[in-house]
Nucleic acid binder design. Sequence first.
DNA 1: AGGCGCTTGTGAAGACGTGCACAAATCGCG
DNA 2: CGCGATTTGTGCACGTCTTCACAAGCGCCT
Lengths: 256, 256
Amino acid sequence: MSQHRHPGAPGRAGAVPALPDLPEATVARLPEYLRALHNLAETGHETVSSEGLASAAGVNSAKLRKDLSHLGSYGTRGVGYDIALLVDQIESVLGLTQCRSVALVGVGNLGHALAGYDGFASRGFRIAALLDADPSRVGEEINGLVVRHIDELPRVAVEEAIAIGVIATPAPAAQAVADQLVAVGVTSILNFAPCVLSVPEGVDVRKVDLAIELQILSFHEHRKASLTALPAAGGSALTALPGGLAVTDTQEAIGT
Amino acid sequence: MSQHRHPGAPGRAGAVPALPDLPEATVARLPEYLRALHNLAETGHETVSSEGLASAAGVNSAKLRKDLSHLGSYGTRGVGYDIALLVDQIESVLGLTQCRSVALVGVGNLGHALAGYDGFASRGFRIAALLDADPSRVGEEINGLVVRHIDELPRVAVEEAIAIGVIATPAPAAQAVADQLVAVGVTSILNFAPCVLSVPEGVDVRKVDLAIELQILSFHEHRKASLTALPAAGGSALTALPGGLAVTDTQEAIGT
DNA sequence: AGGCGCTTGTGAAGACGTGCACAAATCGCG
DNA sequence: CGCGATTTGTGCACGTCTTCACAAGCGCCT
C-alpha cells in the first residue's frame, strides 16, 4: 500500500529510540500537552514544570509526569522540562514530523466546515482531497480545493499519498465510504457519521459524534437537577440552590 | 435557575426509580445504544438480544448487559430486551424526555456547520440561539435563526431557557465566553475550541478537539508503519506486509 | 564545597473498567 | 406438566488507569 519512512532524525537529539508501546490513555493526552507546550513557547517560556504544564493542559501533575516518563522523558530535576525539546519528542512519538495527507469524504454541512477548518493545517495535517458522491457537489471549490467524485478515490489516494480518511457523510453512506477507503489502503479513519463502521483488522477507526456529547451533558444536567430538586420536597419548590453542587470528572475547576 | 421536572412516567412501567449513579463509561455508551435501538425499531424489530444490540452498537455483549443492568434493566431471560421499553428507559436516564435548549456561541466555520447540523434536533436538542461577538456576523440568518450579539446572552438565556452552551469560537475567545455562559446559569458546556476552560465546580465541560483525533490516528499510523518497516532491516525495504497487522482497541473488526 | 529548596521519576496502592463463565430465569413445545 | 433451548444478570478475576508519596537528582546560594 503506502510506504512510510521517517525522514531522518526529528531535528535535535536522538532519533526515535524505539516505540515504547505507550498506554492508550497517555497517547490520547499527548496532543493536549503538545498544544499547551506550543502556547507556552509562544509566550516566551523556555522551560516548564510538570505542575505548570499540567494545569495548562488541564490534568493532574502526577499523571503528566507519568505520561512523559513513558516516552523516556527529558526533564531536569529541580528545573522542569525544556519546552522545545519536549515538543520535538512528542511530535516525534506522534509521528507528526511528516505532514500527513487527509482525504475528506462528504462535503455537506459538516464536511464544508471541516474543509475550512484551519486547525488541521496548523497541526501538520493537509487536507489533500475533497470527495463526495453527489454529482451536484462535484466541481465546487472550497478553500482552494475542488470537490471530486468519490469514484476518483483510487487515483486521488495514490496521487496525494492519502494517509487518513475523514468521513463526514450521512450515516447510511458511511460504511460504503469506509470500505472504499480501506480498499485503497487507508488504515486510519476518522468517522463523523453516527454509525458503527466495520473494518478489517489493522485499520483504526475513531469516532466523533456531536450528538452523543450533548446527550452525555444532558445526563449530567438531568442528574444535577435531580440532586437539587429531590432532597427538598416532592412538589414544585423554588429551592435556593445550595453551595456545594455536583462535581464531575470531565474537567476540574482550576483555582488559579 | 431552571426547574426541571420529569413529566410523569416514562410511558410504560415504573417511573424513574432513582438515579442509580451510573459509571461514567456506561453513561458514555448509552447514547450509542440508544442510536442502535432506534435503528432497530425502524427496521421493525420488537425485541433484541444483548448479542444483537451489542454488535449493532459496536461493543462486547457482556459489557452491554452489565451497562444495562446498572440501570435496573428490563430484559427478559430467554427472549431479550423490549426495544420500545429500553428506549424509554435510556432516554429517561439520560434526561432526554425533555427537549433541551442549546445556545451556540461562535458562528464561524464550525459554528455554521453545527447550526445546520440536523443530528441535534433529531436527538431532542433544539438550537435555540446563535451568538457571536463579531458585529458583522450579527443579524445573519442561518437555518431560520438570526445571529445575535453575545452581549444579549443574559436576555436570551432567560427567554429560551438555555440549558447547554456550545462554544465554537476561536481559542482565545473561549474562556471569556465560558465565563459569560456560567454567569447566566449554564452548567453544561460543550467546547470545540482547542483550549482548556476553567469553570467553577458544578459546571460540566466536555471538549471535542478535531485536531486531537487526527493526532491520535497519526500516532497509530506511525506505529503501524514502524512495525512493518523496522523488523525487516534498517534501510529502504519494500517489505511485503505480513498477515497479522497491528490491532487497536478503538473499534474492533466485526466479522459478521 | 556544602547545604537547601525545588522538581522529576517511580514504586505501590487503590479505583475503575472489562471480560469470562455460569447460575437463574423464561419461553415454547411435546 | 416437564424439559430443553435460549438469554439475561452477575460474581470473580484480570488488566488498565489514576493517585499518592517519596527517594533521587539538579541547580543555586552562601
